[in-house]
Amino acid sequence: MSLVLAQSGGFVRDRSAGASGQDACVARDGVCPSWIAENFDRYVEPLQRHVLLTVVALVIGFTISFALALLAHRRRWLVTPIVQLTGILYTIPSLALFFLLLPLTGRGFLTAEIALVSYTLLIIFRNVITGLDGVPADAVDAARGMGLTDRQVLWKVEIPLALPEIAAGLRIAATTTVGLATLAFFAGAGGLGDPIYADLTFKSNVLVAGGLCVLLAVVLDLLVLLAQRLLTPWTRAATA
């Protein structure tokens, strides 16, 4: 097991670099536009890694929580234990969880993903259940009365009507995961946390890496929102 800091060794600011009068700015740990422009490509790989960490965690987390929610939807007694279990996972601080997992799964992508996935579970599960509970009872009754099978009621009526709530959960999970993935480098999984931690006092570095995180969160948030709007045209139909 190597040192945490060794991982970020690849990202070391070259204070002497920079052609013109930028040296002074860099030496002052300032916000240096030309340094950012020259060194932006250093952030591409961590950003790609960050996107990968986030998207994989969201896809796996969504699959697990959605399946759990469908299971608990018809067996209500399952809701409380699932909420409590995922609640404990959600409570364990991410940093602590990385280190608790290290002896079991070692450093790397897998450990980071286990931790990131475990944080999405409670959020998505809770929202899917809330969404399904919010489906108007009369629509379900009418659907059954018209001869839709249980499976058809679920997929043609309940899930479509729960979509806004499900999407809301996915949005919260997405922004949360982007933030938590900045800590994934502690587990040796890279991401934008790498450059941030490598040079905490250099404003240019922190602003670019942090800014990319926020930007990624906003982009993912908007993507989910866009998908939701395309999938739920009825929510925008003005009332007569």
Binding site: P136, D138, A139, D141, G145, G147, P160, L161
Partner: peptide
């Protein structure tokens, strides 16, 4: 079977039970 039976029986309820998403 219940589902087959119900498809041939019209069903109207007080709250209409219209599907809001359709």
């Amino acid at each position: 079977a219940p589902a087959d039976l119900r498809r041939e029986i019209g069903y109207v309820i007080q709250q209409t039970g219209l599907f809001p998403h359709r």
